[in-house]
Design a binder for these strands. Sequence first.
RNA 1: GCCUGAGUAGCCCAAUGGCAGAGGCAGGGGACUUAAAAUCCCUCAAGUAUGGGUUCGACUCCCAUCUCAGGCACCA
Length: 841
Amino acid sequence: MPYTPSAIEPKWQEFWERNKTFRTEDGGPRPKYYVLDMFPYPSGAGLHVGHPEGYTATDILARWKRMQGFNVLHPMGWDAFGLPAERAAVRDGIHPAIITKRNVDNFRRQIKRLGFSYDWDREVDTSSPDYYRWTQWIFLRLHEKGLAYQASIPVNWCPALGTVLANEEVKDGRYVETGDPVEKRMMKQWMLRITAYAERLVSDLDLVDWPEPVKKMQREWVGKSHGAEITFAIAGHANRTFTVFSTRPDTLMGSTFCVLAPEHPLVREITTPACKAAVADYVEVAGRKSDRDRTSADAKEYSGAFTGAYAVHPLSGENIPIWIADYVLAGYGTGAVMAVPGHDERDFAFATKFGLEVIRVVKALDGSEPKLPYSEDGIATNSPGFDGMTTEQAASAVIAALVAKNAGKGMVTYRLRDWLFSRQRYWGEPFPMIELEDGTMVPLPDDTLPVELPALDDFKPTSDGRPPLARAEAWCKTTDPRTGRPAQRETNTMPQWAGSCWYYLRYIDPKNTTAPWDRAKEKYWLPVDLYIGGTEHAVLHLLYARFWHKVLFDLGLVSTPEPFQKLFNQGMILAYSYRDASGKYFHPKDVEEKDGKSFVKGTGAALEKQVEKMSKSKLNVVSPDEVVDEYGADSMRLYEMFMGPLDAVKPWQMNGVEGIYRFLQRTWRLVVTDEDTLHPGITDGAPSPELTKATHRAIAKVTSDLSNMQFNTAISAMMILVNTLTESQVRPRWCLDQLTLLIAPFAPHLAEELWARLGHPTTLAYEAWPKFDPAALIDATVEIPVSINGKMKDVIVVPRGADQSTIEAAARSNEKIAKLIEGMTIKKVIVIPGKMVNLVV
RNA sequence: GCCUGAGUAGCCCAAUGGCAGAGGCAGGGGACUUAAAAUCCCUCAAGUAUGGGUUCGACUCCCAUCUCAGGCACCA
């Protein structure tokens, strides 16, 4: 029988399912290994080939670790709450739960076809009441700790979506997912006090084995900065002060004016009558500007208005003017800055525009006076009492002087803001909170959970702008279970991030009905040993999940300070797309390529070929289904790993799959003939030295590549072994067994089938991983390149372990080399035993 | 603008500072076949983005530049 994935793959998938081959026990003598995928949002479009990239990598490692004797936890589930299902529900009039179930079923089907060794008994679904009951439970713990609160704040309101968005979801004034514009609105919202964990979210990054760029992005997101808080009195307003934050307190003596954000609460009060009109105008204009306009990079045009008021410089006692300008952000720090135009680009640009005084208070370290604005560190100057000090010394001295005058102190601030945690949506976790008649918001007791979503058939916000849940009037109207008094349910829901903040914990104990997870099981399984997913979650998901985990840690509910010990980001898979001169895209099946150029089939019109992100509109999406249909799951898996390093961005090439398919066929034919018998060359005898060595070499290479997650080169090593065995008419069973075990994590269906045909009665999922003998890899002789002036000229063969003089003699007596060096003086000979010889002439 | 990462045959990609090639695709040739497909065998090809530097020796280390990808961008 020729290699027929469509026959053997379903067979083994059924076998694994029927025998619960991959069911995981919680505990036992084997060491544990928890390998986790970032679970998918089950979209209506189904899987594309990017999803299984990470899943294949984790599956290979999971299978490999099992063969190495680890107790492996490898689960899968669904991040099932979310906006797309709700929008589809509004559009099609179908309940989001039904849409979600349909999508989940499709995702599960697609994933199961790829033969991943998940323990499906642990599948979780964040939109199931059994799951979100515990999401609500964790929210109550956050609330108890004072980490969840309501506040009326300016929020990012997205009119197109009819909901607010977290700061992280907005970029350049638009929703990052859809590009819909976002505007500021004051609203009462649930907030989570993630800022209380800012310091630990930064410092604990030292505890984990994550890619440096991701750590950096998280550090920058938290944005820790050291400096001083400085209080300014206001001339003529005896009881009024304002506070600024500065990272450069050493430049305080160079502060020639102050700037408040237009929204600063003091603006109205301190503005003098003469300036009132101009200031009011400016506040109005600034308020109307969108975030996008206010921060757009090209709009380097500074604007502002003078309030007429003066601040008292805390050290010099001089009066300096107070301006307002929208380059000072109301939401960051104190919403006010001391302007040091000599040493800050923005202040400099502003001072230039409005003719304000600029003075130098920092010289370069070499004493020179670089052009202003000069924002590097240096030596203080023009700063009575601090002259001659370095930036660092001056900063501490200024802080000390401020402390003495009770006008400031050293301070650390963070860019991180509290997390806006409510959405005006239907398809999310309801808050387990009720509002009493007196307006107080109180938590529901744990034993009333879950607060289930009410049945609705219209998921739009109400006509008066309240969230969809407000439509469920009977549901909203409730009583306080403690007092029996009437109450209203909270109608906001949690954002999609909520469910994904703790799913890795639920996998540990997914069926527990009395607790979110069992403590002993948690202690056994955590932390996650390896977490693989895309870079798109480098900040948001990972920061939120770490925050929740730390809260749970402080509550004694989890035993590790960090949830994910090692993180790895897979690179994105791109695809070729074809576009004609007018910009119209063509599907690859309508394209033919000739001499490296692309043409439309039929018409012959010339096309541009480029590599782009897969997208429907570019007609370049590849679905795993089509690949599995044509080549099988094993080819799909192997090709995804063979394309290149896991973390590289790389283009999908269908004929690359073809090459992999051919490799698997060759592997198959080593063992099975087209007549469906065992290959006649298979023997039980000892393999030849050559085949022994080739096999040991493959074992060594695949093993070390797997430990470094270098799947592409591991596959290459297996190809070499297969090619070597193909050349041989004698096929020692030992070699074939070893090869089958090596390939098992990568192409498990093929491996199981060959394993069975080679006469093994049980699954190879728990067979011991092959061991190699380092001695078997050593050759009796080694080839050593000989170069002259660093250019390789010939190769000599010497016994392994030959000493320098032997090698040098061999090199000099080599016919070709001897001829080349004839008549030349050898200035120097470099011999690295076992490596090379270099003659310098 | 700033910070990362990456540029190696036509393409995807390998190479502890020591023979530029492991593997795959595509191309060429051959065997098998009535023929084709499939299969098997053989084979072609770049000197590593560019310019400097360190070294006996550089794809690898250092500096500058270019291109691409990703992240950040009034955060005081």
